[in-house]
Simulated scan of single mutants.
Amino acid sequence: MDAPGFTASLVAGGVAGVSVDLILFPLDTIKTRLQSPQGFNKAGGFRGIYAGVPSAAVGSFPNAAAFFLTYEYVKSLLHTDSTSHFKPVKHMLAASTGEVIPFSLVQFPLWESLKALWAWRRGHVVDSWQSAVCGAFAGGFAAAVTTPLDVAKTRIMLAKAGSSTAGGNVLSAMHGVWRSQGLAGLFAGVLPRMAAISMGGFIFLGAYDQTRSLLLEVGRKSP
């Protein structure tokens, strides 16, 4: 990765992270309360859903910047021909290196594949708004299929100290939810999670592509 690409990925990633946190933080709070074992109202309901937004936004800039910098760098190391069947694997490796979570392993290869498909159908590289739409679809799908893991994480975070759930075993937490609440419990909060992450994917990946494209264009025009 050259110097302009490094700077563009770093700044664009940070801008994307701050943008999505400022806009969608309240929805994540609502989703977490829906997944709480004590119920939505007892967990706080709609009270204080904006609490913590400033600190989250400040922290998201370096995190998102580091993620996208790593993502683009690993992609450049694993550069393959555009027709290669290895491309989805490349995007999975790049995403997992930047942030090792199952969500990214679903979202980013799907995002890149949707962009490639749209570009092939239209005969040109996708615009930033088209990238954002692809990000929304990819984010919504990834949100749906990883909701049980998110429910387990929430239960572990909210578990009483010393309990078996507080031990941090994700599979055990998922099994406990399945036994007590069934499939509905495992997918608690799936709709607000999908809505939030779809909007987040639109804003996050759209803002990233737009900002990175603008910075690269400025870099090319600079003497």
Results as ranks from 00 to 15, higher is better:
Trp118Thr: 13
Ala43Leu: 02
Pro26Trp: 02
Asp150Ser: 14
Met174Ala: 03
Pro26Met: 07
Ala51Ile: 12
Lys115Gly: 04
Val100Gln: 15
Phe137Asp: 09
Trp129Thr: 02
Arg33Trp: 01
Leu10Gly: 06
Ser9Cys: 07
Lys160Glu: 07
Ala159Thr: 02
Leu24Ala: 12
Thr83Pro: 06
Thr147Ser: 06
Leu117Cys: 12
Lys75Gly: 11
Val58Asp: 15
Leu158Phe: 05
Ser163Asn: 05
Leu216Trp: 02
Gln35Pro: 05
Asp21Glu: 15
Leu158Gly: 04
Ser84Pro: 09
Leu205Trp: 05
Asn63Asp: 14
Val89Tyr: 10
Ala43Lys: 04
Phe6Ala: 10
Thr211Phe: 00
Phe67Glu: 02
Val133Ala: 01
Gly59Asn: 08
Gly14Gln: 00
Trp129Ile: 10
Lys42Gly: 11
Leu171Arg: 07
Cys134Ala: 10
Leu27Ile: 13
Lys42Thr: 14
Asp150Leu: 15
Gly176Tyr: 04
Ala143Tyr: 05
Glu217Leu: 14
Ile203Glu: 04
His124Pro: 08
Arg179Val: 14
Ala207Phe: 08
Met194Pro: 03
Gly182His: 09
Leu24Trp: 03
Ser36Trp: 10
Lys90Asp: 06
His91Phe: 11
Phe187Thr: 09
Leu158Cys: 10
Leu22Asp: 07
Gly135Val: 00
Ser82Tyr: 13
Ser9Phe: 01
Gly48Thr: 09
Met157His: 13
Ala196Asn: 08
Gly206Ile: 03
Leu214Glu: 11
Thr147Gln: 06
Met199Thr: 10
Pro62Lys: 07
Arg155Ser: 09
Ala65Ser: 02
Phe187Asn: 07
Ser172Phe: 13
Ser96Gln: 15
Ala119Cys: 08
Thr29Ser: 10
Trp118Gln: 10
Gly17Pro: 02
Lys42Ala: 12
Ser164Asn: 11
Phe141His: 05
Val151His: 03
Ala159Tyr: 13
Val100His: 14
Ala152Lys: 01
Val74Asn: 00
Ala94His: 00
Trp129His: 07
Val177Lys: 05
Gly140Ala: 12
Trp120Pro: 14
Ala196Tyr: 08
Ala3Gly: 07
Thr97Gly: 14
Glu99Leu: 15
Ser180Tyr: 08
Lys31Pro: 10
Leu186Cys: 03
Val145Glu: 01
Thr211Leu: 00
Lys153Glu: 09
Ala159Ile: 01
Leu186Val: 01
Val218His: 08
Arg121Ile: 04
Ala65Ile: 06
Val145Pro: 00
Ser180Ile: 03
Gln130Cys: 09
Ile49Thr: 01
Gly176Val: 15
Met174Asn: 05
Leu205Arg: 11
Ala94Ser: 05
Ala57Pro: 03
Glu99Ser: 15
Pro4Lys: 06
Lys115Asn: 13
Ala143Pro: 02
Ala94Lys: 01
Phe61Pro: 01
